[in-house]
């Protein structure tokens, strides 16, 4: 079977397979660290995928990832937020890609993203349950947001460059452009 056969919107079979595998890797990465509160590799992986694979494919990965969350946890307002918040990180990484050369820039973005995670959801939930609920939600989660931001920064500063290198070399080796 020719893996270069065009399927939909110029997407190749290998794109479809890659997007599926990388979505699965995100879900697996999230579940693997779910026992540690607000320490996750999802933000890091999204940034790595965006730098190595481009914004468009990574956006599709985020859609599948968010949809998988619904299958795992059921439909809820926070899941709807996932359809927005990950694309924001992907687009921010895509914009920075050409401008930031060192891992510090990406680690800072990842840290800020983790810090503002609770605030984003507070705003999002306010649309459903009112501003008072959103404020309480945010205030209650501030310690977790601090932890999220710090852990995102530390994970990215250590793993961002090695992962981008490995991932890019694997793509060169196996991915037919």
């Amino acid at each position: 079977m020719n893996s270069n056969v065009e399927t939909f919107n110029g997407m190749k079979v290998q794109d479809l397979v890659l997007i599926s595998i990388l979505s699965a890797s995100l879900t697996a990465g999230k579940l693997a660290l779910s026992f540690v509160p607000n320490v996750e590799v999802v933000s890091l992986l999204f940034m790595v995928y965006t730098v190595a694979l481009g914004v468009k494919r990574t956006l599709l990965i985020s859609v599948i990832f968010a949809t998988t969350e619904i299958f795992l946890y059921g439909f809820s307002t926070w899941v709807l937020g996932y359809y927005l918040i990950w694309p924001i990180l992907i687009l921010a990484t895509g914009v920075l890609k050409g401008k930031v050369k060192s891992e510090y820039g990406f680690a800072i973005i990842s840290g800020i993203f983790g810090l503002s995670f609770g605030f984003f959801f507070a705003v999002f939930e306010s649309f459903f349950y009112g501003i008072a609920y959103g404020m309480a939600y945010w205030a209650r989660g501030i310690p977790l947001d601090i932890l999220h931001g710090a852990s995102n920064y530390i994970i990215a500063i250590i793993l961002f460059n090695p992962l981008v290198k490995i991932f890019s070399s694997q793509l060169k080796q196996y991915y037919i452009r």
Partner: peptide, 23 residues
Amino acid sequence: KILSIIGVIAAVIILGALYNTYL
């Protein structure tokens, strides 16, 4: 890198203490 990580951990401790005190 290690210095920046230590800096972030210190910031977490300070921010955590401020949260507990005021919020």
